[in-house]
């Protein structure tokens, strides 16, 4: 059935299908290509972590491993060998620091977001503007003075820093976040005012209203904040590196980096397997959290991009 004779030429059914197939082949092909580029470093991390030094140093890189060739010993070496860094301990430290700073952040955030969303008070707009302005300032400006501050609190003693000092120094400056306050305030503001009036008529106190009505309604946002904050701590490097003076107080990123620095001038292929094993061990929990709570995380991130 050809319509070639018409003035405008229409594609035949066959041509349409052909074009569509070509298009999808192209789109899926190119997406797969980029997806591979994204995955390769992770794949390489896992692959290398399972190789013996001679396999690592092979002239032609080994791209696949059979199960019986996998060298799980690297994981044991990295985690439990006496001379290896104490990654279990670092993970413990990180979990503790993440938990404390996240709980702190969520409490201060909920309280402040409530004040901004629900209460009328003097200087509200001015204070709000001030907070927005601070978000423009690079974090390094804060880091310098905060380092001085926690040092003066006696939390960064070079000689005998106590564990709780290190934990305090790592958590306290991060127990509030202007960005999360805005984020939650937006959600709180979407709750109809009538809910508040109804609660008032029923004799609900402000604090009760916050915990019984607003927090449950805003739960998805609060969960997003919890996850993003905890993940931030898990991946934090700069600040913990500055304020912890003993290897035992390392968070995972610092421990991993110290390990890498320690082996820099040693025969690398001897240790790279262990190093990649350690890298994967600290990446793995994040991946699990990510796959479990994908929706919350992506939602938060997309939202943070739209605020502009």
């Amino acid at each position: 059935m050809s319509t070639q004779n018409n003035e405008t030429t229409y594609d035949t059914r066959r041509q349409i299908i052909f074009k569509r197939v070509m298009r999808y082949t192209f789109v899926y092909g190119i997406l797969t290509f980029f997806a591979l580029l994204v995955i390769i470093p992770f794949y390489w991390m896992i692959l290398t972590s399972l190789m013996t030094p001679d396999k690592i140093a092979s002239d032609i890189p080994i791209m696949f491993l059979r199960f019986r060739d996998m060298q799980f010993g690297n994981y044991y070496e990295a985690m439990f060998a006496p001379e290896a860094p104490d990654f279990l301990r670092y993970m413990g430290n990180t979990v503790l620091v993440a938990a404390i700073s996240t709980v702190g952040t969520i409490i201060t955030t909920i309280l402040s977001a409530f004040a901004f969303a629900r209460l009328q008070f003097r200087f509200k707009e001015l204070f709000f503007l001030l907070l927005i302005a601070t978000m423009m300032i690079p974090g390094e400006m804060f880091v310098i003075t905060n380092f001085i501050t926690v040092s003066r609190f006696g939390w960064v003693e070079m000689v005998d820093q106590q564990y709780y000092h290190a934990v305090l120094a790592m958590t306290l400056p991060f127990m509030t976040s202007i960005f999360y306050i805005f984020f939650l305030r937006q959600t709180f503001k979407q709750i109809p005012n009538e809910l508040y009036y109804a609660a008032k008529v029923d004799g609900t106190k402000d604090f009760q209203y916050l915990w019984k009505i607003m927090v449950p309604i805003a739960r998805p946002t609060i969960i997003t904040i919890l996850i993003l904050n905890a993940m931030g701590t898990w991946n934090a490097y700069i600040w913990p590196n500055l304020v912890s003076t003993r290897p035992a107080y390392n968070l995972v990123s610092n421990g991993l980096r110290e390990f890498a620095t320690a082996i820099e001038f040693l025969p690398q292929e001897e240790y790279i397997g262990q190093q990649m094993a350690a890298a994967f061990v600290i990446t793995f929990p994040i991946l699990v959290v990510f796959f479990l709570l994908k929706k919350h995380i992506m939602r938060g991130v997309s939202r943070s991009g739209i605020k502009g």
Partner: peptide, 11 residues
């Protein structure tokens, strides 16, 4: 986005 820049940097 979610993974540790130090760990991936090493890879």
């Amino acid at each position: 986005y979610v993974t540790n820049a130090i760990a991936v940097g090493l890879a």
